[in-house]
């Protein structure tokens, strides 16, 4: 059987909120090392990769590898019934066709069990190559969210450029143009307010803003976001999940015809 007890249940709620509009159905792959998920959006332009390590759970048991086929909208409905401070336990039998979500209130005076039907999903795992990215920028996640949202009101695509000076976001549309530059900034009081740029080579790529916007639904998971870019490769937008792992989004760049 599989059982995972997560003291900070709100993390799972936030993960679902971040991906439920991008991906419809996906397998949660459970093994003795944790829970992993890899799924493409319906148009196969973006890829989501989630890792929740066993060590981040208060209790974790997985006797044999299980692929739990889940409709994310339905799981989100179930998790919305959990309080933000609740402890959430996931449970599934080896041969079962359901998953149980147990919610415990912080002072243990309310225990809820929600049982959700599983589905059979044929999923193909994509091989994501290990890449030494040409540019890696870490910046406040709320700032990234704000920039992407602001640019979306002006254009459909954004050019993201990284030089040793910083990262720039540019767009253009019927009403005009916009260009935002965030400079490397390591002299701020709080580490989470820093913008850091690691660069091997300047890089500039074009992306659809609607996907970047969707990724920023994960902002609540982490105060910082890391953007990894290389010429002619998908961007990686990574939100680290404290003590547990990460939620990564990959987005294919737009290319010249």
């Amino acid at each position: 059987m599989f059982e995972g007890r997560l003291l900070q249940g709100s993390l799972l709620k936030k993960v679902l909120e971040a991906i439920k509009d991008l991906v419809t159905d996906t397998n949660f792959d459970c093994s003795e090392t944790g829970i992993a998920l890899q799924a493409m959006d319906s148009s196969h332009v973006a890829l989501v990769s989630l890792l929740l390590k066993d060590t981040g759970f208060d209790h974790f048991r997985c006797d044999r590898n299980l692929a739990l086929g889940i409709n994310l909208q339905n799981m989100s409905k179930m998790l919305k019934c959990a309080g933000n401070d609740d402890i959430i336990t996931l449970k599934a039998e080896d041969e079962g066709d359901t998953i149980t979500f147990m919610f415990e209130s912080p002072n243990q005076d309310k225990i809820s069990d929600f049982e959700m039907k599983l589905m059979d999903i044929d999923s193909e795992h994509l091989g994501i190559p290990d890449t030494d990215y040409q540019a890696i920028v870490t910046m406040p996640s709320a700032e990234f969210q704000r920039i992407v949202r602001d640019l979306s009101s002006i254009g459909d695509t954004a050019v993201i450029g990284v030089t040793k000076e910083g990262i720039s976001f540019s767009t253009g549309g019927d009403i005009g143009k916009a260009n935002i530059v965030c400079r490397q900034n390591t002299n701020v009081d709080k580490e989470e307010d820093q913008t850091t740029v690691e660069i091997h080579e300047p890089v500039s790529l074009t992306f659809a803003l609607r996907y970047l916007n969707s990724f920023t639904k994960a902002t609540a998971l982490s105060p910082q976001v890391t953007l990894s870019l290389s010429k002619e490769l998908p961007i990686v937008v990574e939100y680290k999940i404290e003590k547990m792992g990460f939620l990564r989004f990959y987005l294919a760049p737009k290319i010249e015809e």
Binding site: M40, S43, H44, V45, A46, L47, E124, H125, L126, G127, I128, P129, T157, T206, A208, L233, P234, Y250, L251, A252, P253, K254, I255, E256, E257
Partner: peptide, 14 residues
């Protein structure tokens, strides 16, 4: 104009 390729053209099946 630019084209939007699929993520599959970067990451093969594994």
């Amino acid at each position: 104009d630019r084209q939007q390729p699929s993520i599959l053209s970067f990451f093969g099946g594994g």
